[in-house]
C-alpha cells in the first residue's frame, strides 16, 4: 500500500486530476494526497470502486484551520549603494495566505487496508470557503461535513442537508477557528484563579451598575 503507487494509479484513471503528495514528517508516516476541487468526487469514487483499492469506508472527516501566517526572513541582496555594488541584509516578509483544510481518512473494509489520507483546501478563510462534498460517495461524511460546516465554516457543495450540527441554527461564528473569541456573556463562578476571578468581579460590578441604572430609570 504505497501512496506513490496509488497516486500514479489515480492519475492514470482519472484524467486531468491534479494530486499533490503531502509528506508527513512525524514517525506515524501517514502521508496524504491533496485533491483539486474539480476532480475530488471523481477521485473519491475511483478510490471507492477500483477493484484493487476499494476504499469503501470513510472513517474520519475533519477540518483544520490555518490562519494567514507572516514569515520574516533575512535575505542578503546585492544592491548598488553609492555607485558601488554591496551585499546588504534585507528583512523580507512573506505572507502565507490562510486556508481551511478538510482531511478525510479512508479505510477498506473489503480489502482490510488503510488508512490513506485525502485533503482539500479552500482558497481563503473569508469568502471562498466552498469545497465539493464527498457525502454522495461516502454517506459517513454526512454528519462530519455538517460538523465542519458548523465549527469551521467550510461550505460543502453537493451536501444533501447542510445545516449546523452542534451549535444552534441562529449561531453566527465558527467556534473551531483559531481566531474565534468566545462571547463574554455567561456567568462566572468566582474561582481561585486570578484572571477568572477578575472577570467574575467585573461581571458582578457590571451587573450591579446595570441594576442601579435600571432603578434610576424607574
Amino acid at each position: 500500500m504505497n501512496l506513490e503507487n496509488i497516486k500514479s494509479e489515480i492519475e492514470a484513471n482519472v484524467p486531468g486530476c491534479q494530486l499533490e503528495f503531502v509528506l508527513n514528517p512525524s514517525p506515524s508516516a501517514q502521508h496524504s494526497l491533496r485533491l483539486d476541487h474539480a476532480h475530488a468526487v471523481a477521485v473519491a469514487t475511483y478510490l471507492r470502486d477500483a477493484a484493487d483499492l476499494r476504499f469503501d469506508f470513510c472513517s474520519n472527516v475533519t477540518g483544520i484551520d490555518w490562519p494567514a501566517k507572516e514569515l520574516t526572513e533575512k535575505v542578503k541582496v546585492k544592491k548598488l549603494v553609492d555607485g558601488e555594488e554591496k551585499e546588504v541584509e534585507e528583512v523580507r516578509k512573506t505572507t502565507i495566505p490562510g486556508t481551511l483544510e478538510v482531511v478525510y481518512h479512508l479505510f477498506s473494509v473489503e480489502k482490510k487496508h488503510g488508512p490513506i489520507t485525502l485533503r482539500m483546501s479552500t482558497k481563503d478563510r473569508e469568502t471562498e470557503v466552498h469545497m465539493p462534498s464527498l457525502t454522495p460517495v461516502w454517506r459517513s461524511a454526512e454528519f462530519q461535513e455538517r460538523e465542519i460546516f458548523d465549527l469551521f465554516g467550510v461550505v460543502f457543495d453537493g451536501h444533501p442537508d447542510l445545516r449546523r450540527l452542534l451549535m444552534w441554527p441562529d449561531f453566527i461564528d465558527h467556534p473551531m477557528r483559531r481566531d474565534y473569541v468566545a462571547p463574554d456573556d455567561f456567568e462566572y463562578e468566582p474561582t481561585a484563579h486570578d484572571a477568572v476571578l477578575q472577570r467574575a468581579n467585573q461581571h458582578q460590578s457590571e451587573a450591579i451598575a446595570k441594576l442601579a441604572s435600571e432603578a434610576e430609570g424607574k
Partner: peptide, 9 residues
C-alpha cells in the same frame, strides 16, 4: 512531539 500528524484508532 515533532511537527506532523497522526490518526490512531
Amino acid at each position: 512531539p515533532k511537527p506532523g500528524e497522526a490518526y490512531g484508532r
